[in-house]
Design a protein around this nucleic acid. Structure first.
Length: 850
RNA sequence: GGGCGCAUAGCUCAGCGGAAGAGCACUCGGCUUACACCCGAGCGGUCGCAGGUUCGAACCCUGCUGCGCCCACCA
């Protein structure tokens, strides 16, 4: 079925169309990735939005693609090479990159096949990859533009360095965990000038170039400006005063290692301290001496031992939990490292990105999460964009023999001649994915039809967890490069998926639910519907097999209902009869259907997917199947031919509409059922329903509500009497004038009274316009004790109600201030309670003694 | 350390100023000619705790407790 949709071109967008545009770019999954629940959720919602818009007559583009995922992919291929006993250096850069492309061709993009399985209606003719020619051109163009405007610069700074991946990491590629460490106190200097510092990283003392204290700290005021001897090294280092130091912490004195700690780097800059690098890129000690060549974690105890030997440890090691940065890719402890990198200056860009949301060009749903967005854009640090990798967009900068630095634009020739070399680094993956909404639509070509038709995109849907990572970058790039035009009108943020106990899914916990397994077990439709039912904006959702089973049951229900209707001749061939020619049940369900369409539309516009799904579930099961189909049976089996024809038409129409409304969430089953029911080509290109006018009928609604109330009360009464559901009982419905008596009898198995009818039990049901007395001939089966028990329970409830309403109405302050409709409602409740008490009391009195 | 959010039926969640809701689970009764992946009936909650505002609070305010997430350069 999916292949037929694709082959028919339903998902292929036409940029020259006159229809209004609706566009979504798929957040590009990593080439190395495979479908997890988070994707399945996001894809379901994007698919639902775009299917609905397509049915509404929009020109829909849902653009798929993948991210080259620099570090992740390079790691995968390096691991593969390691299996062959090779490193990337054995191959050399060019061969290695070739190898990555081969890997991509063979193993990459597994997720694309999984997307088809889910039913994603994406435009495969426009599939993109961040390393495509045009996308690379976009990257180069932005780099050049930023370079020329001074928004990109090169500087030596402390960066997060992963000693295993051998590359710089941006802040967001570092995860902070609370790790156990040990705080060691070390005495620098001797005698009067001794000063004690505390550290968790003793090995870095080899690179200390100062000790810092707070300027107002009187304990050390006399030492500021003097020097102390740095143990183990023989070097003398100054004591400086810096406001960064917290006098309350530890001894109030800090060792300063400018080349290996971000804080110390800043102190070093302020005091013009030497930056002494004592570790190489593999985090091995390079300082000459006994520790040279040791890994940082070997060096730490070695240094401590040496210090102890020298009598420098003044306090025993103390356990200390502190936040430590880990590489988000390989979990290696990040080493702050002084290094020369390229940076994006974010201040101005972040302001542009913030303003676009502040002035409403881009709206964030749910709005509460907008605060987080501002927190981020208003406090952003400059962004390290160079990576010491081979897989990615190479930095388009060339260095000349005389120290020239030339940035080369996309259509320019690199400088040639002796001594020119290109920067070896590549750009952060987010640099290219940040351009995704523009670059995939053809930018920087100004003549791109896609760009003209589909930019700004309509909605960007993603989990709130990557609001900062990705959304903010797209906003910065988009607004800046497109003259203030935002990359998307709406940002919809869904929650994270958790397990049945609300715990985060993780491989180590072993509680991960694989959407592919769910699709095997319950089907793609049920998987999608489950996710949609849980999609409250910005709120996490807990998933368990039971939910999927429930959705599967719903799909089965829909299937059975449609099968039933078709078996009974449901059809859309003829137009719906005029309201006057329909029964009240018909008008009721059509009225409800119209209300449902409006409700669904409103909720969709507000991104309330869970509520859309809930409303459809409720209507289909509890109104259509539980009531209308049962009422329709009476017409189909007992009505005359015009009734039968009308009922078939209403059934056909209602199911036709329901299937259309459900199609965005449940595409496969609805397509199958709808084409069978209507003979139409495909639901994918069918029109979206509009609320049918002219059938809503308050009288019919009230009459059907009466039927529902009577039927429910009679069923309860029967159950209380211990009657089997199927057992037929003779009865009289005294005082019922609603016109649905035969339907009611059919639903609750009550036969017409025979000649020898003798009422042995009765039930009174209060309807809006009077009380109906249902008399049953139980011929001795009546359970008086059960009946008395039930009546006494009802009586107690009615008395409680009376007490409550009387108290309320006797409250003068309430009467004085409460709005009229509230007071009226309570008066009605009170009157009803009084009537109920009378009625029940009389019934109890009439009951034979047991 | 800072910020944000959540605490409502056994479970997962709606409701966000005017009588406590749904689905699942559970109990009871049913193979009633679409469906046992079903039908019908039922049980189940002082809406985290303590104050306050209001005629009225699950809903607004304050504090507390317990979770969760994001951000973060306290050695």
């Amino acid at each position: 079925m999916y292949d037929r949709w694709v082959a028919a071109g339903y998902f292929t967008a036409d940029a020259s169309s006159e229809k209004p545009p609706f566009s979504i770019v798929l957040p590009p999954p990593n080439v190395t990735g495979s479908l997890h629940m988070g994707h399945a959720l996001n894809h379901t919602l994007m698919d639902a939005m775009s299917r609905r818009r397509r049915m509404q007559g929009y020109e829909v583009l849902w653009l798929p693609g993948m991210d080259h995922a620099g570090i992740a992919t390079q790691n995968v291929v390096e691991r593969q090479l390691a299996g062959e006993g090779l490193s990337r250096h054995d191959l050399g850069r060019e061969k290695f990159v070739e190898r990555v492309w081969e890997w991509k061709a063979e193993y990459g993009g597994r997720i694309l096949g999984q997307m088809k399985r889910l039913g994603d209606g994406v435009d495969w003719s426009r599939e993109r990859f961040t390393m495509d020619e045009n996308l690379s051109k976009a990257v180069q163009t932005v780099f050049k533009n930023f370079f020329d405007e001074g928004l990109i610069y090169r500087a030596e700074r402390i960066i997060n360095w992963c000693p295993r991946c051998q590359t710089a990491l941006s802040d967001i590629e570092v995860d902070h965990n609370d790790d156990d460490g040990e705080l060691v106190s070390i005495r620098y200097g001797d005698g009067d000038t001794a000063i004690v510092v505390a550290t968790t990283r003793a090995e870095t003392m080899l690179g200390d170039t100062a000790v810092a204290v707070h300027p107002d700290d009187e304990r050390y005021a006399h030492l500021v400006g003097t020097e102390v001897e740095l143990p183990l090294t023989g070097r003398r280092i100054p004591i400086v005063a810096d406001k960064h130091v917290d006098p309350e912490f530890g001894t109030g004195a800090v060792k300063v290692t400018p080349a290996h700690d971000p804080n110390d780097f800043e102190i070093g800059r302020r005091h013009d301290l030497p930056m002494l690098t004592i570790m190489n890129e593999r985090a091995e000690i390079t300082a000459p001496g006994p520790f040279e060549g040791l890994d940082r974690f070997e060096a730490r105890p070695a240094v401590v031992a040496a210090l102890r030997e020298a009598g420098r440890i003044v306090a025993e090691k103390r356990p200390y939990v502190h936040a430590v940065g880990h590489c988000s890719r390989c979990d290696t402890v990040v080493e702050p490292r002084l290094s020369l990198q390229w940076w994006v200056k974010v201040e101005e860009l972040a302001k542009l990105a913030g303003d676009a949301v502040r002035d409403g060009r881009t709206k964030i749903h749910p709005p509460e999460l907008g605060k987080r967005y501002f927190d981020w854009v208003d406090n952003m640090h400059d962004w390290t964009i160079s990576r010491q990798l081979w897989w990615g967009h190479r930095i388009p900068v060339y260095y000349g023999p005389e120290g020239e630095v030339v940035c080369v634009g996309p259509d320019e020739q690199p400088p040639s001649g002796e001594g020119w070399t290109q920067d070896p680094d590549v750009l952060d993956t987010w640099f290219s994915s940040g351009l995704w909404p523009m670059s995939t639509l053809g930018w920087p070509a100004s003549s791109s039809e896609d760009l003209a038709k589909f930019y700004p995109t309509s909605v960007l849907s993603t989990g709130y967890d990557i609001l900062f990572f990705w959304v903010v970058r797209m906003m910065m790039f988009g607004v800046h490069q497109m003259n203030g035009k935002q990359p998307f009108d709406h940002v919809y943020l869904h929650g994270l998926i958790r397990d049945a106990n609300g715990k985060k899914m993780s491989k180590s916990r072993g509680n991960v639910i694989d959407p592919l397994e769910w699709m095997d077990a319950y089907g793609a439709d049920a998987t999608r519907f489950t996710l949609a039912r849980g999609a409250n904006p910005g709120a996490d959702m807990a998933l368990a097999d039971e939910w999927a089973a429930g959705s599967r049951n719903f799909c089965t229900k829909l299937w059975n209902a449609t099968k039933f209707a078709m078996m009974n001749g449901a059809s859309v061939a003829a137009p719906l009869p005029a309201a006057a020619d329909l029964t009240e049940a018909d008008r009721w369900i059509l009225g409800r259907l119209g209300a449902l369409v409006s409700e669904v539309d409103g909720l969709f516009e507000d991104f309330q997917f869970a509520k859309v799904a809930g409303a459809l579930y409720q209507f289909t099961w509890n109104e259509l199947c539980d009531w209308y189909l049962e009422l329709a049976k009476v017409q189909l089996y007992q009505g005359d031919s015009s009734r039968v024809t009308a009922t078939r038409s209403v059934l056909g129409h209602v199911l036709d509409t329901v299937l259309r409304l459900l199609h965005p969430f449940i595409p496969f089953i609805t397509e199958k059922l709808w084409t069978a029911l209507t003979g139409g080509e495909s639901l994918v290109i069918a029109s979206w329903p509009s609320p049918a006018a002219g059938y809503a009928d308050a009288v019919a609604d009230a009459r059907i509500a009466d039927v529902q109330k009577l039927v429910t009360e009679i069923r309860r009464f029967r159950a209380d009497q211990g009657l089997k559901p199927g057992q037929k009982v003779a009865s009289r419905l005294a005082g019922y004038t609603g016109g649905h008596e035969s339907a009611i009898r059919s639903l609750v198995r009550l036969t017409e009274p025979a000649e020898d009818f003798a009422a042995s039990a009765s039930l009174e049901v209060a309807l809006a316009d009077g009380v109906v007395t249902v008399e049953l001939d139980l011929s001795g089966t009546v359970d008086v004790a059960a009946e008395r028990k039930r009546l006494e329970k009802d009586l107690a409830a009615a008395r409680k109600e009376l007490t409550q309403t009387e108290a309320k109405l006797g409250n003068e302050a309430f009467i004085a201030k409460a709005p009229e409709h509230v007071v009226d409602k309570i008066k009605v409740r009170q009157e009803t309670a009084v009537a109920d008490i009378d009625r029940i009391t009389a019934r109890l009195a009439a009951l034979p003694a047991s």
